[in-house]
Structures are given as structure tokens and as C-alpha cells.
């Protein structure tokens, strides 16, 4: 069964069509990397999946439930639980500065428990937060404030925070792009460890080496369309389209 199916997703900004009909599907536990040159629409795709942008057309199906559907020129429908199907880790972390690390993790689940009257206990939320902090290797930073952490540590907190709501699919938008080179390793290691725990992930990245090793599948996006798709071996070892060949060779210089 596919955990995610995206059908004919289109997005325009004014007259500028940025996504020109994206189709993709993802199995549970699968890791998909998205590569492509600047301005191709990678960020826009992730933002549409997370409803930070509303696509003009297309369908998003999570675990056989249609959570989003839009037809050009009509008002889109978004299922109430759609937002929590996805999680997003931003390039800029976007931690909440006034909250400690553990509070950053607990805030949204706490508010949700209150809002929905789920009866989930604070202690349970805290327990989960501690487990996730251990997963990203930051147990001893639980009570630290974000401004006192390195970029790599902040991004690991952001990953743990996104996992607190157990999204079906966790998306990363260039998670290491705003980090100093020596800090990218720790973040990539955490992401790789999530793969081992069967998380379904979509990773937009410029780290080709990483994409090659962590992904089950890679797609290459150019000008708002999926230009090429396949296993890492196929895409990196035997690229077919001219655009991908040009893109990969440009990266090697």
C-alpha cells in the first residue's frame, strides 16, 4: 500500500507556473530524495504538501484517504486532519526562541491535547519528548534555549519537534544548507538513523553523496516537472536525460 500519492499537482504564482503537474507515490518507510537546480520548484512542492501553499490543482492521498483535492478554478478541499499527515523541517530551523528545547517539543502536542480534549497527559507528552531528544542525541540540552545551541543542534531539535506529532510523512527542505560544513554530518546522521526506524521521508537536498546513500528513490525536478525518477544507482550511475547529466556534472566541479 502506498502511504502517499500525489496526482497532477500544479501550482502557479500569478502567471508563473512553478509546478506543472507532479505525480509521485511513496511506500511506507520509503525515503525519497528530491534533487534539482535552483528555482525548479522543490521547495514549492514541499510547501504544497504541508499546505503552506495551496496548490491550484491536484490531489494528495495519504494512506488511501484524500486529504487534499483541488481542481483548477475551484475552491480546494482540505481534510481537517490533513496538516498532521505531514511534518516539515525547515532550512532555517524556525525554533521558538522563547522556549527551551523540551518546551519547543511539547508546545504543539500540549496545545493539541487541550484543544481536542484528547485527555493525553502532560507526563506522556514529556516522556515522548525525552525519547525523541535521546534519538537526536540532545538529552543533555533539554533545558537549554535555542540561542545557546549550534546550528546543527538546533536543526536536530527541529527534527525531534516535527516527530512529536508522528507525521505519516516527514519532509526536509535542505536541512543542512544553512549549516557550517562541519555541522552537516551530525544532522545527516540523525536523518539516516530515522530511516532505520522506518520513517517515511521526503528530503530535498543538494548533498548528492547523502542522497545517494540514504534514499530508496530519487527524483530530479527541473522547471516544475519530474524530469527523471529512479533508484539512486539509476539516477546517479546512469542518468538518462540531458538536463540531469548537465546537473550532475555541474555539481562535480
Amino acid at each position: 500500500m502506498n502511504i502517499l500519492e500525489v496526482k497532477d499537482l500544479r501550482k502557479r504564482f500569478g502567471d508563473n507556473e512553478v509546478l506543472k503537474g507532479i505525480d509521485l507515490s511513496l511506500k511506507k518507510g520509503e525515503v525519497l530524495s528530491i534533487i534539482g537546480s535552483s528555482g525548479g520548484g522543490k521547495t514549492t512542492l514541499l510547501r504544497c504538501l504541508n499546505f503552506l501553499e495551496i496548490a491550484n490543482n491536484g490531489e494528495i492521498v495519504v494512506a488511501d484517504k484524500t486529504v487534499f483535492s483541488a481542481t483548477e478554478g475551484e475552491k480546494p478541499t482540505i481534510a481537517p486532519e490533513a496538516q498532521l499527515s505531514f511534518g516539515l523541517v525547515f532550512q532555517q530551523f524556525n525554533l521558538f526562541p522563547q522556549y527551551s528545547v523540551i518546551e519547543n517539543l511539547m508546545l504543539a502536542p500540549k496545545l493539541r491535547a487541550k484543544r481536542m480534549g484528547t485527555g493525553e497527559k502532560i507526563e506522556d507528552i514529556e516522556e515522548r519528548a525525552k525519547q525523541l531528544l535521546a534519538t537526536v542525541g540532545l538529552t543533555e540540552k533539554a533545558n537549554e534555549y535555542p540561542c545557546r545551541l549550534s546550528g546543527g543542534q538546533q536543526q536536530r531539535v527541529a527534527i525531534a519537534r516535527a516527530l512529536m506529532l508522528s507525521p505519516d510523512i516527514l519532509c526536509f527542505d535542505e536541512p543542512t544548507s544553512s549549516l557550517d560544513p562541519e555541522l552537516t554530518g551530525e544532522v545527516l546522521r540523525v536523518i539516516r538513523s530515522l530511516k532505520d526506524s522506518e520513517r517515511t521521508m521526503i528530503i530535498v537536498t543538494h548533498e548528492m553523496e547523502f542522497a545517494r546513500h540514504v534514499s530508496d528513490r530519487v527524483i530530479f525536478i527541473s522547471d516544475g516537472v519530474i524530469e527523471e525518477e529512479g533508484t539512486p544507482e539509476e539516477l546517479f550511475g546512469n542518468p538518462k536525460s540531458e538536463k540531469l547529466i548537465a546537473f550532475l556534472s555541474a555539481g562535480q566541479e
Partner: peptide
């Protein structure tokens, strides 16, 4: 206040109201 703060709130399933009062307001006050 950076737009990323609102977006982080939204992606974590918080309502606009919650994001404003629990995340943005104290930063504004400061």
C-alpha cells in the same frame, strides 16, 4: 517577526490564534 515562526506553528498543527498568543506575542513584546 519572521514568517517562519507562523509557518512552524502551522506545520505543527497549531491554530493561528495559538501561534499568535503562544509563540509570536512574547517575541513582539520583547
Amino acid at each position: 517577526i519572521a514568517k517562519g515562526q507562523y509557518e512552524a506553528g502551522q506545520v505543527l498543527g497549531m491554530t493561528r490564534r495559538e501561534t499568535f498568543f503562544k509563540v509570536v506575542l512574547l517575541q513582539v513584546i520583547k
